[in-house]
Design a protein around this nucleic acid. Structure first.
Lengths: 326, 326
DNA sequence: TTGAAAGCGCTAACAA
DNA sequence: TTGTTAGCGCTTTCAA
């Protein structure tokens, strides 16, 4: 604290301009001077002030990430993958939670833009109500939507092919000879809930009318499970909109002593770390979070490197993970 | 982008100094001028440049958070609690993962300090090897250790009283009439592993010599569970160093058809969201993450408000959560 | 290849 | 209460 590039330049016997060039690895510095500068920086324990560099160069080398809830292990894993790739590119990550509140999301995006982030990675919390802030942000910096997307072509999106994932599940269940299935999902306020519901309706055998919608919580899974148990006849399988719901359903079934998969099969979606630990281990659809993060970071990096701002949707194919529950 | 405080000042018919004062809510601005400035800012859709403000005021209103793995739901919940309180104070959060690598942790802390964070919240990944970087950081900005701490008094710490938590478990098991217990924990490379192990050794009835140490992973829990099953006699209870281990143990027991809690009781530590969903639901020790986050942020806020840099350790009392597994 | 100098947009002395 | 002015520490013209 206190030692600036001026001190480094003075000690190295060069101008601050040369010191700056040497420190940032630009070419056009005589090797001799370069090493003198680096040695001086080292000797003085010089710590560059990234804020000053950002102000002048108009780029902060930082990126804003807005997720609904970082405590959701699915988003946490995504963020971890992004952070890893960002760190490798010497960039920092500013994290914000929207808590599924579009109003809070708007304020969070505003705060991030005030901080001059170079780009925004966002899991928009609402299909419709997140569209406006997303468009405003996209007018200022490159924006990539992650996992969820708003209606309309506001910005690029990278996620999983949700409908295809549900198809994998339904086909797997059909191959096992399951007759009647029920779907426990979430109200389609976000694009994944919508796509999974649509996917189920398209892929499910017969009427596909046995659909219960709530939210992506274990509590909803428990309630929905109980509701299904109170009916005259149990379905052959319960297809859940995500793993958290499925874990709730499993716990409701266990409480009533219903055997899975013998009496009813249960499937999830996401393959969160706890899916494999459930009793019985959960058959689910794995989201390739590493691939999603890599592609999102790749898109942004391309934009930083001067690529055209094209708005594209990249749906990565998911993978069925068969375990004991179905 | 483009519209600066000069534009706002010009439109409001005042100097930039007055505009700055009005916008930052300082007193000493005539109400009439204040509203003119705010109106002008509004009309021009002025977005302050936080980088410029930070350079001049020497404070970024941002805070660095370093955790071993954000994908660990325990840390994710902690970060979420911190983020919420920070956002309320109009501060931003820079997130970094150390991936349990002291070398990476050092680089991450360096990057955060280069970015002029006003403070650091850190879960040091190693009791010994994190001490140096922690001390260096603490020499530059206020630092609070979260959950884990290094040996020695490098910086303040806020966490849970781990030994007391284990005592709660052991006493609960004793009250249930459990004779012999085993402990499945982690090698004491971090302070929590150490404190929980020490706590177990002090509190456990009799010899307390049945101790298996690995790491805080479900894989280790599964291996340790299998190892215990291969013995001649099962203990009355398996006390686990955290919930993840306990979930691994439970899945190993389920695989062999051992009934919990009838044949053996199992306990965890942390009360992660999935503890309640386990089959059977896990008896565990709840960490008051909200209280930990609140206290950590309170300590830092006090420092920002000019409090003396005192290094103190705050151990918050944990709570036993009794469920079906023990 | 180098250096002098001009800011980036803002806040904080200081003076009025 | 207001305005003028001088930077914060760095990068980037521009000219040499």
């Amino acid at each position: 604290m206190g030692v600036t590039i001026h001190d480094v330049a003075a000690r190295a016997g060069v101008s601050v301009a040369t010191a700056s060039r040497a420190l940032s690895g630009q070419r056009g510095v005589r090797p001799e001077n370069r090493s003198k500068v680096l040695a001086a920086a080292d000797a003085l324990a010089y710590q560059p002030n990234a804020v000053a560099a950002a102000l002048r160069s108009r780029t902060t080398r930082s990126l804003g990430v807005v997720v609904p809830r970082i405590a959701n292990p699915f988003f946490a894993t995504l963020v971890e993958e992004v952070e890893q790739r960002l760190h490798a590119a010497d960039r920092s990550l500013l994290l914000a939670n929207s808590r599924y509140d579009p109003e809070l999301e708007r304020r969070q995006v505003g705060a991030l833009l005030d901080r001059q982030v170079d780009a925004l990675l966002m899991v928009p919390c609402h299909r419709v109500r997140s569209a406006e802030v997303l468009a405003e942000a996209a007018a200022r910096v490159p924006v990539v939507q992650l996992d969820l997307h708003v209606d309309g072509p506001a910005a690029s999106w990278v996620g999983v092919d949700n409908a295809a994932g549900i198809s994998l599940v339904v086909e797997h269940l059909a191959a096992l000879g399951t007759r009647r299935t029920a779907f426990v999902g979430a109200e389609p306020t976000d694009s994944a809930a919508q796509a999974r519901l649509d996917g189920y309706r398209r892929a499910a055998p017969g009427g596909a009318d046995d659909v219960l919608l709530g939210d992506f919580s274990k509590e909803w899974g428990q309630r929905a499970g109980t509701r299904l148990l109170d009916r005259a006849e149990l379905p052959g399988a319960i297809v859940c909109g995500n793993d958290t719901i499925a874990l709730g359903v499993l716990s409701a079934l266990a409480e009533r002593g219903v055997a899975v998969p013998d009496e009813v099969r249960v499937t999830g979606f996401d393959d969160i770390p706890y899916a494999a630990l459930a009793q019985p281990p959960l058959t689910t659809v794995r989201q390739p979070q590493g691939a999603i993060a890599a592609e999102a970071v790749r898109l942004l990096t391309a934009r930083w490197d001067g690529a055209e701002p094209v708005s594209q949707r990249t749906a990565i194919a998911p993978e069925l993970v068969v375990r004991a529950s179905a």
